[in-house]
Design a binder for these strands. Structure first.
Length: 491
RNA sequence: GGCCUUGUCGUCCAACGGACAAGACAUCGGGUUUUCAACCCGGAAACCGGGGUUCAACUCCCCGCAAGGCUACCA
């Protein structure tokens, strides 16, 4: 551990919609490795596909990574020594390297129209020929020579000239030696002057000093292209770590269509805690840090991180354990902080809650109720609905039908006994323990009822439902007057 | 179709030639209890199939099968 080389890792999402959970997954491993080695974690925006850009999604990438505690050391937002970090601002950077490849005979212009390429592909599929890919019609031709042939397009692209002896093997930090398919004559510069991913990623990773590339398994097949570019440009390639792909329940690559959790923002909207999500992501494709518990911090994860422990099998992204983790983290939060988180969540994600109640009333009641709801909520969004009965005046409290139906015959008797006994309780004694003692004496013992039966009507009167947070504490929060008013409704 | 990657309980994940195949979540049963939770105890639940190699295979090899990825002027 003395000769550790600081690693520069990066995540390079495209701003083409809501940030993807896979970005956070890779960022977590990037951060762990970078921090463990004393290096940097870089965020680069890959916006080379101008057609797919979605406004606002770049900002969401910053926000969601920051929310998760995975803020990059360098990015378009915070800058850095290797700016710009947005590929659309680096067009001038790529061009000379493309020209160099052409001059060296490693790349060539191609004037084939997209129609011709489409036909070529269709023909290849129909003939079931094993070799697909570009047929090199344009190779060695000048613009004028090519213009005489069919399927000509005035604006050319530039393609790699993949040699027959291209190396198809490389070392992966997770998988060891990996074989990959033989590449096609891949386009590296598009007709619109933008580089493709393959060109841009190699140039940028090199120029930005990236030493370890963490990316999804789907990139294994294009790694030989990248290695070829590094070789031609005379650069040494970074180390690669191809992460397993997160899956939908049906085992296909995780998608926003099939899995709402594919959207990173979804977790915030649902009221997941970032530390719980981070913990969960660290458990996917990677064994728990501790033997006796799967609850672990980013610090734990970072300290013991090891690429060889990363699984090669794509895990199904099932939120079951995440829910449990979230509930666990909620239970472990101090009262004040849990209240703060719920309040922040509600104002940000459920504005209607704030509209229905005055801010101070909501916050006051919530803070008082934290002890009785904390172990009953899984998500932050569960909190407000759970205390709704504490926020309305007695007259406005709705009593659920199923609760009313479950009322015992002697409900009036129970309510009367409870009311009389509670009315005698002094304001200063209006505390949960005293309320409970009073009701036990007057109703349970006084009417010789089982507690379960005795408290049923009281709960329905107070909360309007069969299931609610603890009864006596609820009455304490409501206060004597309000509690008696509620009992009166069932008298 | 071709190439590549992968195959342990429902899900996550251990076991890296020598245990009755471990743990977690979920699930089921019980306890506790003013409801619901939380908490405690317990149960059920897996090595894709077939051949090898070996004294010994979940672990190594081969063949199947299955799943996934790539096969774009998308990343």
């Amino acid at each position: 551990m003395n000769d550790v080389i600081p690693q520069r890792t990066r995540v390079a999402p495209s701003p083409t919609g809501d940030p993807h959970v896979g970005t956070a997954y890779q960022a977590l491993f990037d951060v762990a490795y970078a921090r463990q080695t004393g290096g940097q974690f870089v965020l680069r925006i890959e916006d080379t596909d101008q057609n797919r850009l979605v406004e606002g999604s770049e900002q969401q990438i910053y926000d969601s990574l920051a929310w998760l505690g995975l803020a990059p050391d360098e990015s378009p937002q915070v800058g850095g020594d290797f700016a710009p970090y947005r590929q659309s601002e680096r067009l001038d950077t790529y061009r000379p390297f493309v020209d160099q490849l052409i001059a060296d005979g490693h790349a060539y212009y191609c004037w084939c129209s997209s129609e011709r390429l489409k036909e070529l592909r269709a023909a290849q599929e129909a003939s079931k020929t094993p070799d697909t890919g570009y047929d090199r019609l344009c190779l060695g031709l000048t613009r004028d020579e090519r213009a005489k042939l069919p399927g000509f397009s005035e604006t050319p692209v530039v393609r790699m000239l993949v040699p027959d002896d291209v190396s198809l093997t490389f070392d992966d930090l997770i998988r060891g030696e990996v074989n990959a398919p033989r590449p096609d004559d891949q386009v590296i510069l598009k007709a619109d002057g933008f580089p493709t991913y393959h060109m841009a990623v190699v140039v940028d990773d090199h120029l930005m000093g990236i030493t370890t590339v963490v990316r999804g398994e789907e990139w294994i097949s294009s790694t030989p292209k990248h290695l070829l570019l590094y070789k031609w440009l005379g650069w040494s390639a970074p180390a690669f770590a191809h992460m397993p792909l997160l899956r939908n329940a049906d085992h296909s690559k995780i998608s926003k269509r099939k899995n709402p959790a594919a959207r990173l923002m979804w977790f915030r909207e649902q009221g997941y805690l970032p530390e719980a999500l981070l913990n969960f992501l660290a458990l996917l494709g990677y064994p728990p840090v501790h033997d006796d518990s799967e609850v672990e911090t980013l610090t734990d994860f970072t300290a013991t991180f090891d690429w060889t422990k990363v699984s090669t099998v794509g895990p199904v992204f099932d939120t079951g354990k995440l829910d449990w983790l979230n509930a666990t983290y909620i239970r472990n939060l101090p009262d004040d902080e849990l209240a703060d988180r719920i309040i922040e969540f509600v104002y940000e994600c459920v504005p209607s809650t704030a509209e229905n109640h005055t801010q101070t009333q909501f916050e006051t009641v919530l803070r008082a109720a934290i002890p009785i709801i904390r172990e009953r909520i899984t998500l932050l969004k569960d909190a407000a609905p759970m205390i709704d009965y504490l926020l309305v005046p007695a007259a406005d409290l709705t009593i659920d039908d199923d609760a009313r139906d479950a009322l015992p015959e002697n409900t009036p008797e129970i309510i009367a006994a409870a009311t009389t006994a509670l009315a005698a309780l002094g304001d200063a004694d209006w505390r949960a323990d005293a309320i409970q003692a009073t009701l036990r004496t007057s109703v349970v013992e006084g009417l010789a009822l089982k507690p379960k039966v005795a408290f049923n009507p009281v709960r329905t009167a107070i909360a309007g439902r069969k299931v609610s947070p603890p009864l006596f504490e609820s009455m304490e929060i409501l206060g004597k007057g309000e509690s008696l008013a509620r009992l009166a409704r069932l008298a």
